[in-house]
């Protein structure tokens, strides 16, 4: 009797589980459709024929005629898309290299070294971080302008600003370094290794996930930097980055029928960033789970 009951129970439980799983699959599929729909739309629009269907907004999803018109335009002589793309790439690569260096320096110093004024510095930076970034836009602009780093020099200017202030984003990296056992440093120190040596030979190799995480986030940010990039580069189209240039096509009335071209440009921007991100996803997850939680 008892046995039978138990069997029934497990049977009903497995049936319940099956129903539960079916519902879960249904939800996941719906979510996936919602999540992917805009991207599919974007890609489809980018292949709409410019010649036969004009480049403006339309109220249908499937292009009547597929063509590469929009992509050909981006790479034609009429459009500096390649230049804008390279500009963004330069900023992104520089940011990925130098930001990582700055962030790790700060994180290492604050996490594994103890010195006078350490908490004071951290509190000071915490307070600085509470001021909204756009507040200082006009001042930053004129600071850069004094160095000749606006308009024609906007790209080096952007790199400078991005890198210079990157040290404040140390939280995630510090959280990660905090989790490494202190005994690592101490035993090395007993062997007579200097602080610099410990950092380079012991901590650095172990910090690979956080290095990749920092570089990845630093690399991705410039692709979306519209606000400050347009502020420093105004009136000099050779210094635009992709975000600035493509935004203009959508928001300024001077560009009629550029919507499908915008979509094509958007697809080209999204592809490398997405691939890179998906490849390095593992490290990103380690970063957000490990570091972010530690605050």
């Amino acid at each position: 009797m008892a046995n039978k009951n138990k069997e029934k129970k497990t049977a009903s439980r497995s049936r319940n589980r099956k129903i539960g799983n079916a519902i879960t699959y249904a939800i996941l599929i719906i979510i996936s459709i919602i999540w992917l729909f805009p991207f599919v739309g974007l890609v489809l629009q980018s292949f709409r024929s410019y010649a036969s269907e004009y480049g403006g907004m339309v109220a249908y999803l499937m292009p009547k005629e597929f063509s590469l018109d929009n992509y050909t335009y981006l790479f034609s002589g009429d459009c500096s898309f390649v230049r804008w793309y390279l500009n963004t790439l330069i900023v992104a690569v520089c940011a990925a290299i130098f930001n990582t260096f700055m962030v790790l320096s700060v994180a290492y110093a604050l996490s594994r070294l103890r010195f006078r004024g350490r908490t004071l510095l951290m509190q000071f930076w915490l307070i600085l971080g509470m001021f909204p970034g756009f507040l200082t836009m006009i001042c930053m602009y004129f600071l850069l302008q004094q160095f000749g780093l606006t308009q024609a020099g906007a790209i080096p200017g952007l790199v400078l600003v991005t890198v210079a202030s990157s040290g404040m984003g140390y939280y995630v990296a510090k959280g990660f370094l905090d989790t490494m056992p202190k005994a690592l440093d101490e035993s090395a120190r007993l062997d007579g290794a200097s602080n610099a040596r410990i950092a380079v030979t012991i901590i650095l190799p172990l910090a690979k996930p956080i290095i990749i995480y920092t570089a990845l986030t630093a690399f991705m940010a410039p692709w979306c930097d519209y606000v400050f990039a347009s502020y420093v580069a105004f009136g000099y189209s050779k210094s635009y980055n992709v975000a600035v240039a493509l935004q203009r096509w959508v928001w300024t009335n001077d560009y009629q029928g550029y919507f499908t071209r915008f979509c094509a440009g958007g697809v080209l921007v999204a592809i490398p960033v997405t691939i890179l991100f998906l490849c390095l996803q593992k490290y990103y997850v380690e970063g957000v789970t490990g570091g972010a939680v530690k605050g």
Partner: peptide
């Protein structure tokens, strides 16, 4: 799901 993190917002949100 992670696609929305990877694709720059100025493209996806504008669309």
């Amino acid at each position: 799901l992670v696609m929305t993190i990877a694709i720059p917002q100025f493209v996806s949100l504008l669309y």
